[in-house]
């Protein structure tokens, strides 16, 4: 399969008064066409920052300090502001976490979709309206709701409108930052169905979530993030089958299961302070298998069983 997105050694720091928050620290990632990747991690693991960094939506004091982001061989980090504006919407669609505030309360939903067409294509208002109505139907909202204002729709419907805006121009990549967190489980399932159906239309989806069960169910690939770093990256089913990194195992065993008596375990401790992250492997203070070397040296990224992992447990020649 061909490569769509390639992130090399990306570092995104927040320059706050307390110090430099290393929210994304040396992250590399590749995403192929027609793939569904999920970035999974706790709050504060940097997954959302990573998502916002791709179409350069970071706000000050956040800044990309190092690394490149290639979308179809175009380097997004080196583009001019006007060029990146053209990429947003056209090549990268973005869906936000909270559908209750991501739509302008004073603009009709149909017009909010039509706006994307009018901004990026040379078409008249009538054509934009027709296209928007078709798109509304596509995301499962009757087109006669075109004239509705956001407050007249439910949360799930609003998120559908937000998705319609994001996919209006058939972008190559759809980034969804916890799109279902604010919605109930049934609606969540339908929204995920809608997103998954986009893959067959030639899009790739990047889902940011803290719900590893949801991610495993829907995606081809999983990237597990911890404290600004990707600790395990590989095919979703393989990771669920046999997780290698202790953090991934911890995440998986914290998922409650209604049908078995499996005990739900939480990972002890709290996510680290990213201003002064732990030395060596950032997970070592909470890791049940921590060794002396974990405290001293950062684990190298190695490939084990078609998987990219950063953990000393799988490095050869390390005295356990």
């Amino acid at each position: 399969m061909s490569e769509l997105l390639k992130i090399n050694n990306l570092k995104v720091y927040y320059f706050t008064l307390r110090g430099i928050v290393k929210a994304v620290d040396d992250v590399s990632l590749t995403l192929d066409k027609n793939e569904f990747i999920s970035i999974v991690g706790e709050s504060g693991s940097g997954k959302s920052t990573l998502a916002h960094a791709i179409p350069r939506l970071l706000r000050p004091p956040g800044k990309i300090v190092n690394g490149d982001i290639f979308l179809e061989n175009e380097n997004l980090t080196k583009m001019s502001d006007e060029d990146i504006r053209k990429v947003r919407g056209r090549k990268i669609g973005f869906v936000f976490q909270d559908p209750f505030t991501s739509l302008d309360p004073l603009v009709r939903i149909g017009d909010q979709i039509a706006e994307v067409f009018l901004e990026h294509e040379l078409i008249d208002k009538k054509e934009a309206k027709e296209k928007s109505m078709k798109l509304l139907e596509e995301v499962g909202i009757p087109s006669d709701r075109y004239e509705y204002y956001p407050h007249q729709l439910s949360g799930g419907q609003r998120q559908r409108v937000a998705i319609a805006i994001a996919i209006a121009l058939n972008p190559k990549l759809l980034i969804a930052d916890e799109p279902t967190t604010a919605l109930d489980v049934i609606v969540q399932d339908r929204i995920m169905d809608l997103m998954q159906s986009l893959i067959s239309k030639g899009m790739s989806v990047m889902l940011i979530t803290h719900d590893i069960a949801l991610a495993a169910e829907r995606s081809n690939k999983l990237a597990i993030m911890y404290a600004g770093e990707i600790v395990e990256f590989g095919a979703a089913e393989k990771i669920v089958e046999e997780s290698l990194h202790p953090y991934t195992s911890g995440l998986l065993s914290s998922v409650p299961d209604l049908w078995s008596d499996k005990e739900v375990k939480s990972i002890p401790g709290n996510p680290p302070d990213l201003i002064v992250p732990p030395s060596g492997c950032r997970f070592h203070p909470r890791c049940p298998f921590a060794m002396p070397i974990c405290r001293e040296k950062k684990p190298p990224r190695i490939n084990v069983n078609n998987r990219n992992i950063a953990c000393w447990l799988y490095s050869e020649g390390v005295t356990k």
Partner: peptide, 23 residues
């Protein structure tokens, strides 16, 4: 968030000012 969403869909700054902030 809706301003950030408008930026994310590639809306021009001028249009964000006139259509989303002014009203």
């Amino acid at each position: 968030l809706y301003i950030e969403a408008a930026i994310a869909s590639g809306t021009r700054t001028r249009k964000i000012l006139i259509k989303h902030i002014l009203p």
